[in-house]
Design a binder for these strands. Structure first.
Length: 424
RNA sequence: GGAGAGGUGGCUGAGUGGUCGAAAGCGGCUUCCUGCUAAGAAGUUGUACGGUCAAAAGCUGUACCGAGGGUUCGAAUCCCUCCCUCUCCGCCA
């Protein structure tokens, strides 16, 4: 949510910033609604004030008899008048909320212009692209290695659901534990949140109200399957006022993630890249406004450190204004190399949200000097998407005979398993 | 799923149609006192939006005692609906 005061005071700046995103956002109609709301609110408060005066007189018990009926009549009339403005007031409050919640975050000045991924800027490249002759894609390798069972996943659920078999299941679990341990050692406190969350949580991070159809929702309860652990973890401190000394707070969390939208574009119809259910270890930060830029770089580096530990070649992209998610102010994507596909694919998205989510979720802190509460800043990033990591390991570590070497850092999690071999 | 109890400020916990933004205690903050610590004394202590102000402070208006409606000149207090929590029983990993 944007700062309404900023919209009032510097509409042009807001409009300019939002114009860099795709799609039109009517900030101007919001200003009109805001003006009307404030007018009605003022009137409503004046009626209340007079009503309070009248009941104050009754309170003293010194009202002359002939005055009683007069005052009662006036109070009743006031009530009617107030109800009239109240309807308008409520209407405009709802309208304003609706508009405010539908406006995306303003891109940071350091974010490049652009409408789609073509506009993204490569910031760094890490690792050697392996030289593999006739590289196979991960689904082919994974099926032969009994890592994936795609057909049975469809049987159990639907297309884009996959069963991890034996070594696949073990690898997935190893990656999950490795990542959680890794981040824990670097100062992130581990949490394991609910995987069903309520509407307020979904709204707090920006999934709702705009993207209702993208998520799985329970039929009989007002609950959603989390599309990312960002939702429950960022909402941990919703409606709370923390002390400045409490910040920064770093959390890491594993959850499964559920997305209906995955696959709607018809891309990646094969394989394990785009699933309705996938596992992810997430990094979430809460910090002081002045620190979020710095924390964003560090968080991205923490996600990169996983790829480096696994010896997977990747690059870091700075997303352009048109390609960024709704809530983000600035976003880096990490893309890992897929030899079988001969291209980089997204494996992590690290965003700085500024105070955008904090306003929605009412995440505040009390400055150390005791002054007025302020909104904190929030950040998060995948550290990493586990399914895609598994797929990338298969493709990058493949041997001509179809076997796959297991990254050394995973050995402790796999009982010393070093190689995945077919026919075993 | 059945039966009951309850939702009040950072916490514990009073409260009744008006004097209640709300007793008291704890905690927090400020000052005083005392070699230090501990203890003690006094004061202070919610959030949001608006007005005043150059701004902050201050002052001031409105709202908020789970949410929404109703009764009343006036509701934390009475009535209705919903949500949530707790206890007991049942079921269950």
């Amino acid at each position: 949510m944007l700062d309404l005061r900023l919209i009032r005071e510097d509409l042009e700046k807001v409009e300019k910033a939002l114009a860099r995103r795709n799609g039109g956002f009517s900030v101007r109609s919001l200003v009109e609604v805001d003006e009307k709301l404030r007018k009605y609110q003022g009137e409503w408060e004046q009626f209340n004030q007079r009503s309070n005066q009248i009941s104050g007189e009754f309170k003293t018990g010194k009202v002359a008899k002939e005055e009683i009926e007069k005052l009662k009549t006036e109070a009743k009339e006031l009530k009617l008048k107030r109800e009239e403005v109240e309807t308008a007031k409520q209407e405009y409050t709802e309208k304003l909320d609706e508009l405010l919640l539908a406006i995306p975050n303003m891109p940071d000045p350091s974010v490049p212009d652009g409408h789609d991924e073509e506009g993204n800027v490569e910031i760094k490249v890490w690792g050697e692209i392996p030289k593999i002759e006739n590289p196979k894609e991960h689904w082919e390798l994974g099926t032969a290695l009994k890592v994936f069972d795609f057909e049975r996943g469809v049987k159990l659920a639907q297309s884009r659901f996959t069963v991890l078999m034996e070594n696949g299941a073990k690898m997935e679990r190893a990656l999950m534990n490795f990542m959680l341990d890794f981040h824990s050692k670097r100062g992130y406190r581990e949490v394991f949140p609910p995987i069903l969350v309520n509407k307020a949580s979904m709204q707090g991070t920006g999934q709702l109200p705009k993207f209702e159809g993208d998520f799985y929702k329970c039929a009989d309860d007002e609950l959603y399957l989390v599309p990312t652990s960002e939702v429950p973890v960022t909402n941990l401190y919703r409606d709370e006022i923390l002390n400045e000394e409490d910040l920064p707070i770093f959390h890491t969390a594993y959850t499964p993630n559920f997305r209906r939208e995955a696959g709607s574009a018809g891309k990646d119809t094969r394989g394990y890249i785009r699933q309705h259910q996938f596992n992810k270890v997430e990094l979430v930060k809460f910090c002081l406004p002045d620190h979020s830029e710095d924390e964003h770089e560090k968080l991205t580096a923490d996600a990169e450190a996983i790829l480096e530990a696994l010896l997977l070649p990747y690059r870091r992209m700075l997303l352009c204004a048109g390609d960024m998610g709704f809530s983000a102010k600035k976003c880096y994507d990490l893309e890992v190399w897929f030899p079988g596909q001969n291209k980089y694919r997204e494996i992590s998205s690290c965003s700085n949200f500024g105070d955008f989510q904090a306003r929605r979720a009412n995440l505040r802190y009390r400055p150390a000097d005791g002054s007025k509460t302020r909104f904190m800043h929030t950040l998060n990033g995948s550290g990493l998407a586990i399914g895609r990591t598994l797929a990338a390991i298969l493709e990058n570590n493949q041997k001509p005979d179809g076997s796959v070497t297991v990254p050394k850092v995973l050995a402790p999690y796999l009982g010393g398993l070093e190689v995945l071999e077919p026919n075993r």
